[in-house]
Write a protein that binds this DNA or RNA. Structure first.
Lengths: 213, 213
DNA sequence: GTCTATACAGGGATAGAC
DNA sequence: GTCTATCCCTGTATAGAC
C-alpha cells in the first residue's frame, strides 16, 4: 500500500513511472503486466520491484503523480486564456478546446485517468479521494476562482462560482470526454471545437452579464 | 464473434445472461471468470460454453441486451414525466432523478455500462456502435423527440432538439454519473436531487419560453 | 440429448529467489 | 538480469445423471 520511498537511482525511478504511465494507460490495470512495464522502462523487473512494493503501489503512485501534473497543465491553460480576457466567448472556447486536448489526447495523461475510472471499485477510498483532490476537484476549484474574478470584473453574473465551474465543465468538456470514452476513441478536432463553441454559448446564456452583451 | 444461437434450454440461457450481467458488472471483463459466471447461474461451465462460443461473445451479448433494456426503461420514464407536463420544472427534475437512479443504481444495469466503458479499447468498432445505438444514443433521440413536442406546445424554445437533449443530459445526469463513477460509488439521494434541480434550472435558463416564465 | 461434475492442457501472470 | 515456484483462467474433454 505505502509507496516504497527512495530506494535506487532516481533516473531509474522516473523511467519506471513513465513506462508505467504508458503501459497502464494503454492496457488498463488488470491487463498490464509488470514484465511489460519493465521492458518499456528498459530496466529489469527486479529493479521495478526494488522501487515499488507491488503492482498496486506502482499504479496508485503514478496515478497520483499524473493527476497532479495534469492539474498543473490545466492551471497553465487557465493562466493563458482566462487571465487577461479580452473576448470572453472566444477565450472560453479556446480554453475548452485546449483542455480537452490536454486531458483526452491519446497515449498521454488521459489514458491513466481512464484506467483509474475502470478500477475505481478496487481502489481504497482514501487513495481515490487523494486522486480526486489532486486532479478533477483541484481543477474545479481553480476554475471557480477564475470565474469569481471574472464576476468581480463584471463579465459574468455568478452566484456560486463552484457551480458555474462545474456547469462550464459539463457543457464544454464532458460531452467530448463521453464521446471519446475519456480518450480511448479519437474525436476529430472540428468536433471538439464545435462542442466547445455550443457549450460556451449555452454557458453564457446562463451566466453572461447583461451589460457585457 | 457470432452469438451461438438457440442451443439448449432457454431458461438456462436466461440464467446465464443474468449471472453474466451480475458478474461482469461487479468484476469487469478481465477479472470476471467463466467459472464464477457458471456458479452464479447455477449451471455447469460446459453449459455456458454450450450457449455462448466464448467469453467475449457472452460479454458483448449481455451488453447489448442490457443496453436495449435500459433504453426501454428510460423511455417509460419519459412517458411518465414528459407526456402530460403540468409543472415543467418539477417534471424535468423528477425525470432526471429517476433516470439517474435507473442507470446508476448499484448492482443493476449501470454496472455493465461501466464494464463496457472500461473495455472500450478492446471492443470491435461495429459492436461498440451497436451498443451506443441501442443505449445512450437511442435515449438521446427519444429525449430530443420529447423536447420537440414541448417546443411545439410553447413550453420551450428549442432550435436544435438534439442539442437540447444532450445539454439537458449533461446538466442533470453526467454530473451524477461522474461523481458516482457510473454507479461504482454511491451518491446520496439528496445529492442526486440537488444536482437535478440546479441542472434543470440552468437548462431552463437556456431553453424556457419567455411566455411560460 | 441436454445437463452436471470434474479434471486437464496450455498459457500467462505475480512475486520473489538465485 | 534470469529463472522458477505457484497460482489462476480459458477452453476442452471425459465421466455419469435426468
Amino acid at each position: 500500500m505505502a509507496a516504497t520511498g527512495g530506494a535506487g537511482r532516481p533516473e531509474k525511478r522516473q523511467a519506471i513511472t513513465r513506462a508505467a504511465t504508458t503501459v497502464f494507460g494503454r492496457e488498463g490495470y488488470v491487463r498490464a503486466s509488470m514484465d511489460a512495464i519493465a521492458a518499456e522502462a528498459g530496466v529489469s523487473k527486479r529493479t521495478v520491484y526494488n522501487h515499488f512494493a507491488d503492482k498496486e503501489t506502482l499504479f496508485l503512485t503514478v496515478a497520483l503523480e499524473n493527476s497532479a501534473e495534469l492539474t498543473g497543465k490545466i492551471r497553465e491553460l487557465m493562466r493563458t486564456y482566462l487571465e487577461r480576457v479580452v473576448d470572453l466567448r472566444q477565450d472560453l472556447i479556446d480554453f475548452a478546446v485546449d483542455r480537452a486536448r490536454a486531458v483526452l489526447s491519446a497515449g498521454d495523461h488521459g489514458a491513466l485517468g481512464r484506467a483509474i475510472r475502470a478500477e475505481v471499485a478496487n481502489i481504497p477510498a482514501d487513495v481515490l479521494a487523494a486522486w480526486l483532490d489532486a486532479g478533477p476537484v483541484a481543477s474545479l476549484r481553480d476554475l471557480a476562482e477564475r470565474f469569481a474574478v471574472l464576476a468581480d470584473r463584471g463579465l459574468l453574473v455568478v452566484e456560486d462560482p463552484g457551480l458555474a465551474a462545474e456547469q462550464y465543465t459539463l457543457l464544454t468538456f464532458h460531452g467530448v470526454a463521453e464521446r471519446s470514452f475519456w480518450g480511448a476513441v479519437p474525436v476529430p478536432d472540428e468536433e471538439v471545437a464545435r462542442i466547445a463553441a455550443v457549450g460556451v454559448d449555452a454557458f453564457l446564456k446562463i451566466y453572461r452579464a447583461p451589460a457585457a452583451g
